Amino acid sequence: MISKIKRAVCSMVAAFAAAATLTVGVPSGSAYAIDHVQCVGGENFLKIYSHLNGRNSVDCYANAGKTNFGGWWVDRIVTGNNDLIYYDANGDSVRINRWHDITFPNHPPKVASIQIL
């Protein structure tokens, strides 16, 4: 009886070890890590012109992923070679395809987060 229990425990330990090895050893797909990068002329980064509380900002982003944008008011978006979704403070999401340059002169959106696809 004890040998049956011992065999069952050994089998469970072996199964757990195999599962742990596969979990650690097999990549889980693409990693998404959007990066806030230095704006460089001639590069096709996502470029966002924005303002908040009397301050203006121009920010560039590269690589797929999603990041917080802090509720800044967006005046202009140049997508470069990136497909973009921005999430505004009202909970709406807007997709903008690559190679677009969009301005919001009268009613800029207040953007909560951005996502490069």
Rank of each mutant, 00 (worst) to 15 (best):
A19L: 15
G71S: 01
F69H: 00
D101H: 06
S93F: 08
G25D: 02
D59Q: 15
D88W: 02
A89P: 00
R95W: 06
S30K: 11
F104S: 03
G71Q: 02
A20E: 07
W72T: 07
A64V: 06
A18H: 02
A62M: 07
D101N: 15
P108R: 07
P27E: 03
V13L: 15
Y49M: 08
N81G: 04
G71C: 03
R76P: 10
A31N: 13
V26K: 11
I85Q: 05
A8W: 06
N44I: 00
N106R: 14
C60I: 09
I102V: 13
N68R: 06
T79Q: 02
S28I: 03
Y61V: 06
D92K: 13
I85S: 08
V26A: 08
Q38A: 14
R95C: 05
V78C: 10
A19I: 15
I48N: 01
I5P: 00
S50N: 05
I96S: 08
T79P: 04
G25V: 02
V94W: 07
P109S: 00
D75Y: 01
S11Q: 10
Q115H: 08
M1E: 09
N56T: 11
Y49V: 08
R98C: 08
A19H: 03
I114G: 01
D83N: 15
T21I: 14
T67M: 12
N81H: 09
N44H: 09
F69R: 00
A64Y: 08
A19E: 04
N68F: 10
A8H: 05
A18Q: 04
M12N: 12
D35S: 12
Y86M: 04
F45H: 15
E43N: 13
R76K: 15
R95Q: 12
P27C: 00
K47I: 12
S93N: 14
P108T: 07
D35P: 00
N63C: 00
H51M: 07
T79C: 02
D83W: 05
H107T: 14
W99P: 01
S50D: 04
L84G: 04
I116F: 00
V24F: 13
A33G: 08
T79G: 03
H107V: 10
H107K: 11
I102Q: 02
P27N: 04
P109W: 00
P27T: 03
F69E: 00
A19M: 15
D75R: 02
A62D: 14
I102W: 02
Y32V: 07
Y86C: 01
F16C: 14
W72G: 02
P108K: 10
W72Y: 10
V94Y: 08
